[in-house]
Simulated assay, not measured.
Amino acid sequence: MKMQIETVDDVALLQQDLNCLLSWAKDNNMKMNGDKFEVMRYGPLLDIKEHTKYQAHQQNITPKEYVRDLGVTMSADGTFSHHIHLITTTGRKLTGWILRTFQTRERSCMLTLWKALVLPRLEYCCQLWSPHKTGDIMRLETLQRTFNSRIAGLQQLNYWERLNELKLYSLQRR
């Protein structure tokens, strides 16, 4: 079974499949919201990417640069840098909220807050988007480095010593 769009005929076949799906849905009393259809185009075939359109309910499906699915943002360039940017922004907001809301900087409290509120967001589905670019890795590590430097009694230690003391792994390793 062919899974790539390489020619204009492949585009027509995909549109035909989409029309069959919409027809099946109508026959089974299902309503699909055409405004929620998204298309993302990968690959080097610029002619096909730029000059083809897909339709649902007689309206064009707008090509997207980023598509979010199950909490992970995928990019048309095939990287997850945008996703990493989004989760580190969220992580920065959460850590700022934690530091403003809780006066204590006691180790057990700060570690509990980190593990309960921030770390799950940074690690969600990381097997899929596992960073390999140095900038993406640094963005993640900087967030953890900044947060654990605020924990009482650890300010004089470097990042790796703090991780060892807290029994945490670097985000890259995790």
Rank of each mutant, 00 (worst) to 15 (best):
T62S: 12
H57R: 11
R68C: 02
D35C: 04
L46Q: 14
K53F: 06
H57T: 01
R68A: 01
M40S: 01
D35P: 07
M32V: 12
P63M: 14
H51F: 14
I48Q: 06
N33S: 10
Q55C: 14
E38C: 12
D27C: 04
E65T: 05
M30G: 03
T62H: 05
H57N: 15
I61W: 04
F37W: 11
Q58Y: 12
R41E: 11
D27L: 07
L45N: 15
Y54M: 10
K53Y: 12
K31A: 09
K31F: 09
H57P: 02
E38I: 03
E38T: 08
E50A: 14
K36N: 05
M30P: 04
T62F: 00
N60M: 10
F37K: 04
K31E: 12
D27K: 05
D35H: 13
N29H: 13
Q58H: 09
K49H: 06
R41T: 07
N60R: 15
K31S: 15
H51P: 00
N28R: 06
K64I: 07
D47A: 09
G43I: 00
M32W: 13
G43L: 03
M40H: 04
N60C: 13
Y42D: 00
V67H: 08
V39R: 03
K49W: 01
H57I: 04
D47G: 08
N28L: 10
P44N: 05
L45D: 06
P44D: 07
N29A: 07
T52E: 03
I61T: 08
V67D: 01
V39M: 02
G34Q: 12
Y66C: 07
I61M: 09
D35K: 13
N60Y: 13
K53D: 15
Y54N: 11
D47E: 14
E50K: 13
Q55P: 00
K36A: 02
K64W: 01
Y42M: 08
K64N: 13
V67W: 07
Q55M: 14
K64E: 12
K49M: 09
D27P: 00
